[in-house]
Design a protein around this nucleic acid. Structure first.
Length: 157
DNA sequence: GCCAACGTTGGC
DNA sequence: GCCAACGTTGGC
C-alpha cells in the first residue's frame, strides 16, 4: 500500500527524518480518528509513504519513507510534558492514539510541488489537493504513486 | 440527538 | 493575515 503523511517542516521536516538515528522516527501526534484509523488499520510493514510539507510557501512532496513498524500506542499522548499530551486519556482507559515507525528511504531530486500536482490531469481528485482538506494521513493509489515518482525522481540517500 | 459556537489546519 | 473546511464541544 501507499500513503502520504503531512508534516510542517518547521516542526519536523523530511531532512529531519533523514538525520534521525537510523533515518527512522515514530510518527507521533496524530489526533484525528480518521487519520488514526489509517495508521492503525492500514499501515503495514514495507508500505511506502510520501512525506509532504504543509503550511509553507511551496507545499510539496519531499521524498519517500518506508513503514518499519506497525501501529503501537502513542507514548506522547500520555506524557504530561509532551505537547501532544491528551488530557482526556485517563490512566485506566486505553490510549486511543497510535504511532507507526517510518524510515526515510529515498529523496526526491525534484520535490513535487502542490502546484505541479494541481496541473496533473492524472492526479485530479486526490484528497490532498481538495481545498480545506485537513487530514494528515492519506491513502495514495498505485497510479498516483507512479505518477508522483515519475515527477519526483527518487534518489537513494 | 441537534446544532451553534468554537478551534484548528493549511492553502492562498 | 484571511478565511474555507470541518472536527469537536457543550447547551439544550
Amino acid at each position: 500500500m501507499y500513503w502520504l503523511l503531512k508534516t510542517e517542516p518547521s516542526v519536523f521536516s523530511f531532512e529531519d527524518l533523514v538525520k534521525s538515528p537510523n533515518k527512522t522516527t515514530c510518527w507521533e501526534g496524530v489526533r484525528n480518528y480518521q487519520a488514526r484509523n489509517f495508521l492503525r488499520d492500514g499501515f503495514q510493514k514495507g508500505d511506502l509513504v510520501f512525506i509532504y510539507h504543509s503550511n509553507v510557501e511551496e507545499p510539496a512532496i519531499m521524498g519517500i519513507a518506508t513503514v518499519v513498524r506497525t501501529a503501537y500506542p502513542d507514548p506522547f499522548a500520555v506524557d504530561r510534558k509532551s505537547k501532544y499530551f491528551d488530557e482526556r486519556v485517563k490512566p485506566r482507559d486505553k490510549n486511543p492514539w497510535v504511532v507507526v515507525d517510518v524510515q526515510a528511504s529515498e529523496r526526491f531530486a525534484n520535490p513535487v510541488t502542490r502546484e505541479q500536482m494541481m496541473a496533473q490531469a492524472s492526479l485530479k481528485g486526490m484528497a490532498l489537493l481538495k481545498r480545506g482538506n485537513r487530514l494528515s494521513v492519506l491513502p495514495i493509489t498505485k497510479d498516483q504513486y507512479q505518477t508522483l515518482c515519475k515527477l519526483g525522481k527518487p534518489t537513494a540517500l
